[in-house]
């Protein structure tokens, strides 16, 4: 209050210039990047589970500590480290497949950054089938003539081949899904947040002013 108007007159546009420049510069440097939210994505391909970890929007987590846990018991099944692209792959542990475990994949990148992905058993078990027992349709084959046996064998091979092809075709789709499942900050989020802040402090000011008036 005291010397404001005086200073304002004395220091005209001179000091607004640099500030405006600085603010514009910062806004220019500002990308919609949220550099430290860690997202993990995992999918199965045959007997292998691939995981990909990155900081939103697109910085791979290098050297992150990966832990694969059984969701129910919390037991650690295996651990590993992400590579330069933030990727880490592992073969599905036999016990996980046998007990149909839901896998919790936790990636920790130090400094308090952590992300996780839940891979449900039904998402990775189908890929295992060809290597495991015969598929269910082949079960009633025991009573059939020998000719049908060759047919089921053919069918099995066909199924295997199809699975492989589908896996290959689906991988880019999966990556696209992973990309889309990351929730990005939007302008409405930012503006909404600013509005909330003004509202909360406005409310506080309102109650303060009422309290002062009638004590």
């Amino acid at each position: 209050m005291r010397s404001t108007s005086f200073c304002l007159r004395k220091m005209p546009a001179l000091h607004w210039g640099p500030l405006v420049c600085a603010v514009l510069g910062l806004l220019a440097a500002a990308s919609p990047a949220l550099a430290h939210r860690l997202v993990v994505f995992a999918y199965a391909e045959g007997r292998t589970i691939h995981t990909e970890s990155k900081f939103v929007p697109d910085t791979p987590v290098r050297g992150g500590q990966v832990q694969v846990l059984d969701r129910q018991t919390g037991a650690v099944l295996l651990t590993g480290t992400t590579d330069e692209q933030g990727k880490f792959s592992f073969t599905i542990p036999d016990e996980a497949a046998a007990r149909k475990m839901d896998l919790r994949i936790v990636v920790e990148a130090g400094m308090g950054h952590q992300g996780e992905w839940l891979l449900k058993a039904e998402r990775y078990l189908p890929g295992l089938k060809p290597a495991g027992a015969a598929p269910p349709p082949a079960a009633p084959s025991a009573a059939e003539p020998p000719g049908a046996k060759a047919a089921t064998l053919d069918q099995k091979m066909l199924e295997e081949a199809l699975t492989r092809i589908l896996e290959r075709q689906l991988t880019p789709m999966r990556e696209m899904l992973a990309e889309m499942s990351v929730r990005r900050t939007s302008l409405p989020d930012i503006i909404g947040g600013l509005g909330y802040i003004m509202g909360i402090f406005g409310l506080w000011a309102y109650f303060q002013s009422r309290g002062k008036k009638n004590p």
Binding site: A29, P32, A35, H36, L194, S209
Partner: peptide, 29 residues
Amino acid sequence: NAAIPRVALLSAAFFVASLIHVPVGPVGL
């Protein structure tokens, strides 16, 4: 009471500052 608008303004600045990306270092800050 006089400080409330100032505090609100800074709260808003802090809220938005986290979106201003400093593109240095392994993680980005």
